[in-house]
């Protein structure tokens, strides 16, 4: 590891101030991606601004409308333990990585990083969640912008993620054999006004919604509604662990299983 400075502000305001001064800074959530990146010198900011000491981005609560509000700094382990009102989300969080990852990694960090194989983006997109930052509220459909890219501006911090709790939901992950990240992960959420299906791990464009499956399931929320539906493998990631066609096939399998489990 190289030498860098670290600041531990206690308010979002102080963190934003630090991130906007002239020093080259990087916000640090749980560090599950950033720290390995620094160790490999793939990024070398002069200063890290840890968000770990900011109490106002901690905590899980429900607002008056029943939406589940999770602070941007809440760890996966805390979501797994404390998001019982949205069991599919808690279940997803409880199966990210291993205990060490879950005890350090945060929902805000994961979303800001937008790894194409991360689990959380599928839950946020399938739930039509709202990503709240220090400056604005961003709808899930506007937040994700391709691999490792989001609508966040420089120095913008995710303070909360608000999930409307669906009538039924489930997440099904097929693990990549080595990393255990999602080779394909599908989150299905059924709301009064329709079904949303979000897919992670599969596409070269990052997390996406499967419109045909959503339409079919909105009419009939049953696995059989998916009969005959398939995705084209051409836009899918193709690597050592599976071709685009294999991933496209897995999306259909995992969607079906998620519907059955919901």
């Amino acid at each position: 590891m190289y030498t860098f400075d670290i600041e531990r502000p206690s308010t979002v305001g102080d963190a934003v101030k630090l991130l906007s001064d002239s020093t080259e800074s990087q916000p640090l959530g749980g560090g599950q991606t950033l720290i390995p990146t620094l160790k490999q010198r793939l990024a070398m900011p002069d200063r890290l601004v840890s968000l770990g000491g900011i109490t106002e981005i901690q905590g899980i609560s429900q607002d008056d409308g029943g939406a589940l509000c999770i602070g941007g700094g809440v760890t996966h382990a805390d979501v797994a333990a404390g998001a019982g009102a949205y069991a599919a989300l808690a279940g997803l969080a409880g199966k990210i990585g291993d205990p060490a990852v879950r005890n350090r990694g945060t929902i805000g960090g994961s979303l800001a990083n937008n790894d194409p194989s991360a689990c959380y983006p599928s839950a946020v997109l399938a739930s039509g969640a709202t990503v709240v930052t220090n400056t604005r509220e961003i709808a899930a459909d506007d937040f994700f912008d391709g691999l490792f890219t989001t609508a966040l501006e420089e120095g913008e911090i995710i303070t909360e993620v608000r999930f409307a709790v669906p009538q039924k939901a489930a997440y099904m992950k097929f693990e990549q054999p080595a990393s255990r990240f999602a080779l394909v992960g599908v989150f299905v959420a059924k709301y009064a006004d329709g079904v949303r299906v979000a897919v992670t791990g599969a596409s070269e464009g990052g997390v996406f919604r499967w419109a045909e499956a959503e339409a079919a399931l909105s009419t009939n929320f049953a696995a059989s509604a998916l009969d005959g539906l398939s995705l084209d493998g051409s836009g899918m990631i193709s690597d050592l662990h599976g071709s685009g066609d294999y991933r496209a096939h897995l999306v259909a399998v995992m969607t079906r299983r998620a519907v059955e489990a919901a």
């Binding site: 054999p177 080595a178 990393s179 990240f181 050592l240």
Partner: peptide, 17 residues
């Protein structure tokens, strides 16, 4: 695994199972 340029694709436990 190696790519067509001879680059080792399985260079970490993220890809070597």
């Amino acid at each position: 695994g190696y790519d067509e340029n001879g680059q080792l694709l399985t260079g970490s436990f993220m890809d070597y199972a």
